[in-house]
Amino acid sequence: MIDEIVYAIKKAETKLSEDTVKALKAAYERESNPLARTQLEAILKNVEIAEKYSLPMCQDTGLQTFFMDVGYDFPFIRELKVAIEEAVRRATKEIPLRPNAVHPFLHKNSGDNTGRFVPYIHWELHEGDDAVIHVIPKGGGSENMSGLYMLPPGVGIKGIKKKVIEHIFNSGGKPCPPTIIGVGIGGGADLALTLAKKAAILRPIGARHEEEFVAQLEEELYEMANKLGIGPMGLGGDTTVLDVHVEYAHRHPATLPLGIVTQCWANRKRKVRISADGKVEVV
């Protein structure tokens, strides 16, 4: 299992996910601003070179993050955490990855991307006997441009739309646009951000929410964000976001949490699927 997780980290870091490549190419075709086109072209070339030479596509290889979707009857549940930690140590040496785990008070870098609560492993359970590990190393520059707003519920859907667009405006070129924006509404402070992160990264670009109302909201936010004119790397242009994904939970009557998670163009993700008979595949 460790070998396959190392392989998944390597693939995530060196070969950009297909949906993202497709979206970047489409954006390049559409883009009317010549400077913006130079940026998209450089990104696409960079992606090609990274894949060809098996190099990390960005020197910030991210905080190693794993979203788990584990069946109640999955037989190897005890082994997962240890396997992930070991895979991270090995991947750091073998790929190599930049050591990105720093003690917040002592400033010491652990050197192998592990430490207190990292790699970050988020657990969810489902009916069944298989397990899926979402391997999603996440860059620091885009994570810095994520945010939580505890809105007064009275502002309603208009208030949410305004805040999302203001947030993208204030982020400017800092998160290395074109970005993918995840929006989580409701639940509580933590749940809103978790929903936003899942929406941004786990959902393929271009896939819409199954509920018509939410899908429309995504479409509207996507259109508005790209009218801002911030453009790739903040140098101006039609392509500020590749997509906006929204997810929601029921909320407390007194709260309207809005979580926004920004993902950079280096949208690194792979899935490791493990079945009950021990078969492991990376997709």
Partner: peptide, 13 residues
Amino acid sequence: TAYTGGCGALAAE
């Protein structure tokens, strides 16, 4: 001048 953010592999080439 701005060099495209994240393009570490392109630069190395």
